[in-house]
């Protein structure tokens, strides 16, 4: 099992469980529907990676990539117009009125999260601020059919990861 934890301060975090993701792209269209994002910018994109092991066996892995709302966000540091800032929920918030579309954020983002639409200004995953404020999972997490995206408190997620690790260990021991 391999998972990545998207840090978002505040109450909940998004767990991205690559062992469950099958690259179905449902989170992408769900995010578009939820946020009425026009074609073009992809706040969420699932990328596929193909690997070949020493025996020649081929396997695929998938990684849903959106804004990780980093704790030490390089985009905030480089934005020349202070369009990016951390908000009260710990999410990296974009003030589009301040954005000049220079693309600095895209050059430093390790995840390729910043997107550019027809107006050539930056846009990205806002972290489903309203949903989190209402104690709902992010749209991508609620709408994921394979359970690869899960939204919960750090304590809950920690327990979840530990439990599945124990289950995997038990299965291997069989």
């Amino acid at each position: 099992m391999r998972e990545e934890i998207m840090m978002a301060a505040g109450e909940t975090m998004l767990l991205i469980d690559q062992s469950r993701c099958v690259g179905c792209h449902a989170c992408e269209t769900a995010c578009k529907m939820e946020n009425n994002v026009p074609p073009g910018p992809r706040w969420m994109e699932v990328v596929e990676h193909e690997s070949v092991d020493a025996a020649g066996d081929v396997a695929l892995s998938f990684l849903p990539l959106n804004c990780r709302h980093c704790a030490d966000a390089p985009c905030i540091a480089v934005c020349p117009t202070q369009a990016l800032a951390r908000d009260g929920l710990g999410l990296v918030r974009l003030e589009r009125e301040r954005c000049i579309g220079c693309g600095e954020c895209l050059f430093v983002c390790p995840f390729g999260a910043p997107q550019f639409g027809e107006d050539r200004l930056m846009q990205k995953c806002h972290g489903c601020r309203e949903r989190r404020a209402r104690n709902l999972p992010t749209a991508c997490a609620q709408y994921c059919p394979s359970g690869a995206l899960r939204c919960a408190t750090p304590r809950e997620l920690s327990h979840l990861v530990r439990t599945s690790r124990a289950a995997l260990g038990a299965a291997r021991a069989d």
Binding site: V58, P145, D174
Partner: peptide
């Protein structure tokens, strides 16, 4: 995907093994 992946994962979390026969390397494979 709901029937096949959702319930397959339920079974695998209980420790079930999975064998796939498919000429193509799919995600489930």
């Amino acid at each position: 995907i709901h029937q096949e992946i959702g319930y397959l994962y339920d079974a695998m979390e209980r420790g079930a093994r999975l064998i796939v026969v498919d000429p193509i390397v799919t995600a489930v494979a």
